[in-house]
Amino acid sequence: MEGELEEVERQLRGAKGVPSAESLIRYLRLMRDLHIRDSPTVARYGNILLRHYRSHLSEEELWTVHEQVAIAALDSHALPFAASVVRAINRRFPDSVRAKRLQGMYFEAAGDYGRAEDVYRDILVGDNTNETALKRLVALQRSQGDTPAAIDAMKKYLDVFSNDKDAWEELADMYLEVLNYRQAAFCMEELLMLSPHNSSFYVRYADILYTIGGPTNYKTARSYYSKAIELTMGGSLRALFGVLACCAHITEKVSLQDARSRAQIELPEVTTQALLRIYKQHAPDKLPFVEPILAKLAGQSERP
């Protein structure tokens, strides 16, 4: 599908004058299906499509395209154009909640936060389970820079819709912004359970634990960095450095008893080797800087 998209993009860029309706429709459809955010381009081509080839679209797709183009225009801050599209949608679907939400998003983009909030609250009065309106309220606070209020709104949303991955991720970010690491760790735990195969979540969770500090947290962080190394086949530099940093902080001695403690003793050494190899291969000019750091980390972990 990505290949198809590239082909259509080439067609569009190569077109002299107004591109053909077919390629425009196909481009917008692909962008919708692949969830790619390239708002300025979508807004530009969408504008051409809606102006020249309205009749080429079926009734359903016409309004889907309207919505897509409206959001893209808002995202790229093309306010006059967005206003015209949003108005058209509102005229066609006067009672639609989705149309109302677009209206609210327009106010948001225009900086009229009070009216935007009114619109969303109005939607929630009619249907208090409207997910998107609840989420917009979070975004509203976030774009005004009021992170604590955004956190409260997000908590309210997640209390009900507790399976929303993106929301958990956003909440984790917001907690990190206000330096509330314990809550951020909680959110990362939810994310780990939601997608246990995403190595970046392991690294971020370990980062947070490492930041909180304390002997138990260092150990746990080391385990999670190790898991990230396992998942990326040693390709995540952040995880490799993380393991070393954790090992440097863990002072308690382990005696050689089983496979696990042996691995814990060998871990810093093997990680250092891996790191050196990666640097040698991909960035040999950085080696002189890395070597002393690694030596220092290793020296710390060997200290009794």
Binding site: R222, S223, G234, A263, L267, V270, Q273, R277, I278
Partner: peptide, 22 residues
């Protein structure tokens, strides 16, 4: 799940180093 993560990480890195993948 992480009980044996360190062991597996060491294994993975050893193998990668041996196979010259790193």
């Amino acid at each position: 799940e992480m009980e044996s993560a360190e062991e597996r990480a060491v294994d993975v890195m050893r193998r990668a180093i041996k196979a010259k993948k790193l």
